[in-house]
Every structure is written in structure tokens, then in C-alpha cells.
Simulated scan of single mutants.
Amino acid sequence: MDKKRKILIIDDAVDTVELLKKRLRYEGHDTIEAYDGEEGLQMVAEHNPDLIILDVMMPKLDGYQVCKRLKSQKNTKYIPIIMLTAKSDMGDKVKGLDVGANDYLAKPFHYEELSARIKSLLAVKEAREQLVKEEKSEALNQMMDEVAHEIRNPLTSIGGFARRVHQKLSAGDPNKRYMEMIIQEVTRLEKMVQQLVDLKTTVLFYKEQSNVNDIIMEALKPFQQKCQEKGIEIETDLLDNSPPMSVDIEHMKVALCNLIENSIEAMKDTLKKRLRITSHVSDGTIEVQIADTGKGIPKDKIKNIFDPFFTSKTSGPGVGLTLALKIIQEHRGSVSVESKPGIGTTFTIRLPIKRP
């Protein structure tokens, strides 16, 4: 299933917006509309579009001002912008390109030409994103090798000596508590190193026919006692007669465990604690949702949560979510995240029923 691209149309001419919206949606794109510069900037912040069609002459903020602001910000500088204007003077065109527009089209224009330019800019954006992903993956692999090698041996020594000292200390010794803190942190780092090793070895797959519901229930088992102790209510709503899938059972179990653990961690300091896991079939895929009533993730942090060692307000640094994403992508699946601070977070996993 191809991902629909989101295109933001910013133009104060309602007729132009409606025409572009109909044509773009007919071509399979999603559209968002804004009718002045300020509203356009607000829509960019809310929807993070893949491309912007931007009129020049608008109230409040003109297209040049909007373009300049977007191209000066780290989060929006790489969004392609096509400027539309009734001005055909070369100086206006140069001004648009100078403030960062990727293309410039004078009104009236042929839609076929605009469509071709949209396709070209989206292809360039997709190629850039793929290159960044590959470079990040290569850097990650190198980092994993170095970290696992340089940290594992010292951690083993520190943990081993700390446990020996802890055993020899009397129950009332105040240093016993400090030893417990050291052991706890060493255990956390050992787990992180193991996740790095797991991340490196996920390229080795053994796929077999399995039922996703069985994998979900197996992934839940290690957390049932912990949820009971923490007062977390577990709800499951799994589809009947789940179609068989070709998956690496152990790897998929690891992915689900990491997502479940993240949800449990997010509810650490909340009053309402509910973990809800559902599965159903949608558009040729099996969708698994893992929802919590935790603190939620701020909007500006969501795009980074799958980066290794990223720290959010809901959980500490690690590679659990990175590992989950990699495993799911190796199964030709995807993960999306919806979150609202103070309400909770939902991870949606989509896995193809049949291999494309």
C-alpha cells in the first residue's frame, strides 16, 4: 500500500483552492487547506505536509514571508514549496527562489505542468529521505559494534564486583543501598547493550506460519505480574480466526514486548492505568494497536521516538523502540504513533497478510 502524500494548499482564492483540492485528491494525495499566511504556518505545524503549494499575494503574511520562515526552521526547511503567483515578472520569480522556494509557477497555469512539478519534487524528497535513512542505518551499525565491544566487558566487571560487595554487606549497612543502585544501573546498561546486539542480529530471520494473536499473548506474559503490581488494567480485543502470517515469531515477540514495555513505563506516574491491545484486519493488513493511558508524547517529540537513545519525558534513553521498528519493517510492515499529552499514546502496527 503506497503512502498518501499530504499536500498543503495556501491560497486566499477559494476557487483556486477548491480546484487544486479536487485534482490532487483525484490523483491520490491527501490535502490540507489554508487561506492566509498565518493559517498556513499553523497548518504546517499541525500536519507536517510533504509539499506546499503557496500563493504569493495573501493577507496577514504573504507567500514570501511564509516561505522564508519555513525555510529558516530546522523542522520545515526540507519541505518542498511551489510558489504560485499572478506576477510573472522575473524579479518576483528570483525573489521567490531567493527566499527558498523549490519551484515557481505563474498564474494562469496548466494543471498538468503543476502536477508534473509536484511529482518531481516529491520524488526528490523521497530520495533524500531514503538516503538519510541509509546513512543513519550505516552509522547506527558502526555505533552498535563499537558500543557493544567497548562497554560490555567493563560492565560485566563492575556488575560482578558490585554484586559481591553487596552480598558481603550486612543488612543494616547504609552502603548496601548504594550498591543496589549501582547494580540496578548496571543491569539497565547491560540490557541496553543486549538490545544493541539484538538490533544488529535482526537481519537473520527464520519465518514460519503463525497467528498474530498467539504472538501478542506470548509477548504479554512477562508483563502480567508487573502490571498487576502497578495496578495497570490489561484489556485485549483480538480478532476471531486471525489469518496465518509468515513471521519470525521470536523477533516479532521482541518487537511487541518493547512496545508494551514502553507503554507500561509511560503510565508510571499516572492515576488511570490501562493497557489495551487490539487486532483486526484492514485493507489487506493485520493491524495491531497497543494503547496506554500514560503521560503522552509532545507533538514535537513524536518523530524522534524511534531514534536510538532518544529520551522523551515518558521514558529514558534506549533502543527498544528502534529495535521494534526495524523488526516490523523487516516484515514489510509499518508503525504509526498517535499521542496526546495527558491522555496517552497508541502505537499502530500494520503487517501485510500476504507478501507483496
Rank of each mutant, 00 (worst) to 15 (best):
M1I: 07
V14D: 11
V17L: 03
L19Q: 10
K21W: 00
K22R: 13
E27Y: 08
D30A: 09
D36E: 10
Q42S: 13
N48T: 11
I52P: 04
L54M: 14
V56H: 01
K60T: 14
L61W: 06
D62N: 13
D62V: 01
G63F: 04
L70T: 07
K71A: 04
Q73D: 12
P80M: 07
M83Y: 00
T85F: 03
K95T: 09
L97W: 06
D98T: 14
V99R: 06
P108F: 10
K119P: 07
A123G: 08
R128C: 02
R128H: 11
E129P: 02
E129W: 00
Q130A: 14
E138I: 10
L140G: 04
Q142N: 11
M143Y: 14
M143C: 03
E146G: 00
A148W: 01
H149P: 00
E150S: 12
L155F: 01
L155V: 04
S157R: 10
G160L: 06
R163K: 13
V165I: 15
Q167A: 14
K168F: 08
L169C: 03
L169R: 02
S170C: 01
A171P: 00
D173E: 06
M181P: 00
I182T: 12
Q184T: 08
K191C: 05
M192C: 08
M192N: 06
V193R: 03
D198W: 10
T202D: 09
F205H: 13
K207M: 10
S210R: 09
I216H: 09
M217R: 15
L220W: 06
P222T: 03
Q224R: 14
K230C: 08
I234P: 03
T236F: 02
T236A: 04
L239R: 00
D240I: 08
S242G: 11
M245G: 03
M245V: 06
D248E: 02
I249A: 11
I249N: 10
L256C: 09
L256H: 07
L259E: 04
L259Y: 02
I260Y: 00
E261I: 00
E261L: 11
E261Q: 15
S263Q: 09
E265V: 12
A266V: 00
A266E: 14
M267E: 05
L271T: 15
L275H: 04
R276G: 04
S279W: 06
S282F: 15
G284D: 03
I286N: 04
E287D: 15
Q289H: 12
T293M: 14
G294N: 07
G294L: 07
G294C: 08
I297V: 11
P298C: 10
K299T: 06
I305A: 06
F306E: 01
P308L: 05
F309L: 15
F309N: 11
F310G: 02
S312T: 15
S315C: 13
G318D: 06
G318C: 06
G318H: 04
V319M: 13
G320C: 04
G320A: 13
L321A: 02
L321D: 01
I328D: 05
H331C: 07
G333K: 01
S334P: 02
P341I: 01
I343F: 01
T346R: 05
T348P: 02
R350C: 07
P352M: 05
I353K: 07
